[in-house]
């Protein structure tokens, strides 16, 4: 086993299989544990695993708990289908599946009767990922979550907040949405 805390590169042997189990950032081949990324070598003594803590940015794989910025793609009776376009605080593009669903019970804290009064196709929303397997599930419960930018269903112009409702500046139409508390401010990287 090499010294803990040393910087390793892909292909560097860090330990042998008798000593440790391969963990994050390592793999096992022919009885050796080898680093697969650039990072610092660590040992998890509880699990007796070898870990390489990345020193580089790593590929963005979605996980439960991430704050996601999504676009509403489709509305059904009990579900909102969204496409995740950004993860707050991360510059990288998403690796893998990007389509997710928000069940009607996860839209707001209160009972939701009509999905069309909460979200509309094309809305940009902030949501929390609550599950990634077997399919991505999101939730917009809580005041930080909900629409951060919505469009008029009549003329497609961006809506402006008027107290608890949204107003279209060009046609004057009033619409209802589940809004985030910072609607219209464009905070894409706010992590909640």
């Amino acid at each position: 086993m090499i010294k803990e805390g040393s910087t390793v590169l892909p292909g560097d042997k860090v330990a042998i299989s008798e000593e440790l189990q391969p963990g994050e950032g390592t793999y096992e081949k022919n009885g050796e544990i080898i680093a697969s990324i650039i990072g610092r070598f660590r040992v998890d003594r509880q699990r007796m695993t070898a870990i390489v803590e990345p020193l580089t940015k790593i590929p963005l794989v979605l996980k439960a708990g991430d704050t996601a910025i999504c676009e509403v793609k489709q509305l059904t009776e009990a579900m909102v289908i969204v496409r995740i376009i950004h993860i707050a605080g991360n510059k990288r593009q998403i690796a893998g599946e990007k389509d997710g669903a928000i069940h009607i019970s996860n839209i707001a804290d209160e009972f939701v009767d009509d999905i069309g009064k909460k979200y509309r196709i094309g809305d940009i929303i902030r949501a929390k990922i609550i599950r990634v397997e077997p399919a991505i599930q999101l939730s917009t419960k809580g005041k930080g979550f909900g629409t951060i930018k919505a469009y008029c269903t009549n003329c497609r112009n961006p809506l402006i907040r008027k107290n608890d409702l949204l107003e279209c500046p060009s046609c004057g139409r009033m619409e209802e949405r589940k809004m985030a508390d910072d609607y219209g401010e464009g905070n894409l990287d706010r992590v909640i």
Partner: peptide
């Protein structure tokens, strides 16, 4: 390697 992509 700079992109942090795991490699053998």
């Amino acid at each position: 390697a700079d992109a942090g992509i795991p490699m053998r």
